[in-house]
């Protein structure tokens, strides 16, 4: 199964930058966040970058963005380009196809996050006035990578689940974007409006709680449960005989 998965991942990698218009789209998707979070934000924050909110933003937003850009293509893209039936008629197992496509999206998201963090650390240490070597604390880094991995897996699970049924990549991307961006962007202001003044409302209390050990653990557990649910749903939803009409 590992060999089959690596075969599919190889194909996904070869195809990634070769879709019509995808070079420009991927360049913008990669270079803009990389430029802002890897260069501009560290230059502005200086040594405080390692303890500020920016690394968390990199750990949460970049993998999500990368997964949302790539994972909807997993099955909807094959269907749109009329390659799905031939792929399914091959000897590759259901599990190898599914986990390879999921894994590829997660790997890309994690690679994007790690590349940006490494760049940011280089910029902070070489181009800002820091005393000694500035670095993100080990516990914080492990926590960030864990959350990032779970978020990527969750998003990839949701994306593949949507992609299995979507007729086109655009349709899959729009549905996924609605789930991950529209709902939070509507709920956020609603929460803020109902949270009273800006210093002592429930939203502030919630964010304070997130900073505690129990808050961090709870977030990890909730994300892990959601990721397992979505990945299981994707596995159950992936059956050859449901994908060909």
């Amino acid at each position: 199964m590992i060999t089959d998965m690596s075969t599919v991942i190889w194909k996904e990698w070869k195809s990634l930058f070769r879709q019509p218009g995808s070079r420009l789209r991927m360049a913008l998707t990669v270079l803009i966040p990389l430029g802002y979070f890897g260069i501009i934000a560290p230059l502005q924050a200086g040594g405080e970058f390692t303890t500020g909110a920016e690394p968390w933003f990199i750990a949460v937003v970049l993998p999500l963005l990368t997964v949302i850009m790539t994972a909807p293509d997993s099955f909807a893209g094959e269907r749109e380009r009329k390659t799905l039936r031939t792929l399914l008629a091959s000897t590759l197992s259901d599990s190898a196809i599914l986990w390879a496509k999921l894994g590829f999206a997660v790997l890309l998201g994690m690679a994007m996050m790690i590349a940006t963090l490494v760049l940011a650390m280089v910029v902070v240490n070489l181009f800002t006035n820091t005393t000694g070597v500035a670095a993100i604390g080990v516990a914080r880094l492990i926590h960030m990578i864990g959350v990032s991995l779970l978020l990527s897996a969750m998003a990839a699970g949701a994306a593949v689940l949507i992609s299995l049924r979507a007729e086109t990549v655009q349709q899959a991307q729009q549905t996924l974007a609605a789930v991950f961006f529209v709902i939070p962007s509507v709920l956020g202001p609603v929460l803020l409006i109902t949270s009273g003044d800006g210093e002592s409302g429930p939203v502030v209390a919630f964010f304070d709680w997130l900073g505690t050990t129990s808050g961090r653990l709870t977030v990890v557990v909730v994300l892990a449960v959601l990721a397992v649910i979505l990945l299981t749903a994707a596995r159950v939803g992936f059956r050859r005989t449901r994908l060909v009409s």
Binding site: K14, K82, R85
Partner: peptide, 26 residues
């Protein structure tokens, strides 16, 4: 199987298309 569509990855080279399926067939 050669189905009613060619099922080729058009952005990949001919060699890469075949290489992928050769590996898929282990």
């Amino acid at each position: 199987a050669l189905l009613d569509e060619t099922g080729l990855y058009e952005q990949m080279s001919a060699y890469e298309n075949l290489w992928f399926y050769a590996r898929a067939w282990r």
